[in-house]
Every structure is written in structure tokens, then in C-alpha cells.
């Protein structure tokens, strides 16, 4: 199953999560002051940015601001740094349970399928082209143990599964794929996209290179209008991954989109990565994927299979963090005495 004309299967490095203390603190006060025993799902916002240091991948990060603001903090909403290039917002859903038992009893596969369905619908409705961050929609389940100040949680980054999987015909550093003129023009166009507050946090885009080697970056929704022109088109995305031989997770759902919407069987893509905050064609990758799914895979009524529960050190188990040291009033009183 892994072979398609003897080409290697395109393998994606999973997205990884990172949760800041401020998120758990705000969740605790929300739970105590507002939510009570209400277990309804909560809309949250994760943040990520393209990989910027060759040694480490970037993460989907949750901060205090990831949760809805307190009623008396509404005024600060405006501050939620729109256009912050280091904090591209991604929508997510939080299911916080009241007990550890109900946390473990959650039907994780159904929850994941429900999120995949949202992504699939956004692809078919065209919403994903207007607001591409929805392609990286994520899921978080948690149990906040406010007696012990410990938090059990599990992330999922839903990825629509291409069956059979996409294969790879080429994957190289962008600097090797492009001519020096093209590389320079693509870098300049990407830096312009990243420096404009209206596009800095838009993580999927089109890279077009005209026959005169001039590159420009355009929003995904311009795909149709780019067709008439005599130019190369690549699908670009902010790649959180730092690995030299694998694209990161966000490429999965954009490949699903290009097939579902435009029936593309051969897709060139740019894994956009930075060095010290600027476009880096040495670490960015350019690749070409072949997608050949059976008839009917594109049926809007029929959601493809989905994967994406985050592993914890290679195992399928949830994570747990204890903040008793910094949050437990009893312990704080003792350490202050």
C-alpha cells in the first residue's frame, strides 16, 4: 500500500503542542467563576508561526489569551494582537470534563471525526479559501483537577487521510529548486507577505512565479484567477516543522483541499520556513506530491478518515501537568512563611 509507481509515501511531521501556565490559570478561574459544571465545548484559539530556528520545530501554543476573555476584560479584546507575525491564530475546540473518569470516557474518535467534518465542510463551502487557518483546526480535551492543581489533557490535530497516501516525486531545499533569481524574488515576496499586518498571520497562500521569474504571493482564493496566466503556482504554508526531509502537518489538509476543490493530482508546494524571522530558502522546502484517490473520495457528504491525536513521547497517552507549586494556596502560604 505504501508504493505508488515506486515513489515514496509523503510523510508529514506531526504538529506538537505547547501549553503555557497562563492558559491553565485562566481555565481554572473560568471553571470556578463562570462555567461551573457546564461541559459544553468552548471555542479557543491556538497560535503558531513558521519554524524559525533550524534546531527546533515550532508548536501550536496555548496562552491565557487562547480562552475567551473575562467579562470585565472585554475592552482588551482589541489588543488581541491581530497581525502579530509570531502568533498566527488557529481555531480550536476545548472539551473540559468535570471528572477524570469522564475525561477518560470521552469518545475521542467521534470527537476527532466531528472536527474533521468541520474542516471538510469548510473546504467544500469555500470558507477555507477565505480563512485558511480553519484548515489547521485543532481539538483539546482536558480535565482540570482544581483540588490537586493538576491538568490532564490531550491534543488532536485532525488531518484528512488521503487513501492511498500522496507520494513524493521531489522534495528539496527551495534554494536548490529555484534559480537564484527565483529564490530571491520568492524570498522578497514572502517577506512582504509576512511584514504586512493584513497577511502576516495568514498561514496558507499561493506562490506564483511568472515567466520573467518574478514571484508574488497571493491569497488562496485567487487560485481560479491565477489559472489564465502563464506562470508556475505553488501552494505555500507556514511550516512549523524544522526537519530537512519532511513537511509539517498543515500540508495534509491543504492537499485534501486542492484535490477536493480543484481535482489536482499533481501539486507543487512550498514549506515556508524562516531564519531569524526572515524567509530562508535554505531551510524552506519545495516539493511535488502526487495525489490519486479513488472516485467518490471527493464526495462532500462523505468525510474522509481522519488521524491526529498527539502522541506523548511516542505513546498514545494523555499528558498531565501539575501546577501545585505555583497555584496551590496552601503550598504558596507554606513557601512564603
Amino acid at each position: 500500500m505504501a508504493e505508488n509507481e515506486n515513489k515514496p509515501v509523503l510523510q508529514f511531521a506531526p504538529f506538537q503542542s505547547s501549553v503555557h501556565e497562563g492558559f491553565w490559570r485562566r481555565l481554572s478561574s473560568l471553571k470556578l467563576d463562570i462555567l461551573g459544571i457546564d461541559q459544553a465545548p468552548i471555542s479557543i484559539t491556538g497560535f503558531y508561526a513558521p519554524c524559525s530556528h533550524a534546531q527546533v520545530s515550532n508548536h501550536l501554543t496555548l496562552l491565557a489569551e487562547s480562552l475567551p476573555p473575562d467579562a470585565n476584560e472585554q475592552a482588551s479584546l482589541e489588543v488581541l494582537s491581530l497581525g502579530n507575525r509570531n502568533r498566527c491564530p488557529v481555531p480550536g475546540t476545548l472539551y473540559n470534563t468535570n471528572t477524570l473518569e469522564s475525561f477518560h470516557a470521552l469518545d475521542r474518535q467521534s470527537l476527532l471525526k466531528a472536527e474533521a467534518k468541520k474542516i471538510w465542510e469548510d473546504i467544500h463551502s469555500g470558507k477555507a479559501e477565505e480563512d485558511p487557518a480553519v484548515l489547521s483546526r485543532f481539538l483539546l480535551i482536558s480535565f482540570a483537577d482544581l483540588k490537586k492543581w493538576s491538568f490532564h489533557y490531550w491534543f488532536a490535530f485532525p488531518a484528512l487521510v488521503l487513501e492511498p497516501p500522496a507520494t513524493l516525486t521531489d522534495l528539496r531545499p527551495a534554494a536548490q529548486c529555484f534559480s537564484p533569481e527565483e529564490a530571491e524574488s520568492v524570498s522578497a515576496a514572502c517577506n512582504k507577505w509576512r511584514n504586512s499586518s493584513s497577511t502576516a498571520d495568514v498561514p496558507f497562500f499561493l506562490v506564483t512565479i511568472a515567466s520573467n521569474l518574478h514571484a508574488s504571493i497571493r491569497p488562496l482564493r485567487d487560485w481560479e484567477t491565477c489559472q489564465s496566466d502563464d506562470q508556475q503556482i505553488l501552494f505555500g504554508f507556514y511550516d512549523p516543522c524544522n526537519l530537512p526531509n519532511n513537511p509539517g502537518w498543515p500540508l495534509r489538509n491543504i492537499l485534501a483541499l486542492t484535490h477536493a476543490r480543484w481535482n489536482l493530482k499533481q501539486v507543487r508546494f512550498l514549506c515556508y520556513r524562516e531564519k531569524q524571522g526572515f524567509a530562508d530558502m535554505g531551510s524552506s522546502l519545495v516539493g511535488e506530491a502526487l495525489v490519486s484517490v479513488p472516485q467518490g473520495w471527493n464526495d462532500p457528504q462523505c468525510v474522509p478518515n481522519v488521524v491526529g491525536w498527539e502522541r506523548n513521547k511516542g505513546r498514545n497517552v494523555p499528558r498531565c501537568i501539575s501546577l501545585a507549586e505555583s497555584m496551590d494556596p496552601t503550598r504558596l502560604a507554606i513557601s512564603a512563611a
Partner: peptide
């Protein structure tokens, strides 16, 4: 039981497996 019952991602050939090790 958890680990055995949830082998979907392990069966997915498009998931790079080694990044957490």
C-alpha cells in the same frame, strides 16, 4: 488498553513516526 485500541495513527503510513523519540 488505550494504546491497543487507538492504533489508527500507527496504521497511517503518511504520519512520520519518530519525531517524539
Amino acid at each position: 488498553e488505550y494504546e491497543e485500541s487507538d492504533n489508527v495513527i500507527e496504521a497511517d503510513p503518511a504520519t512520520l513516526q519518530s519525531t517524539y523519540l
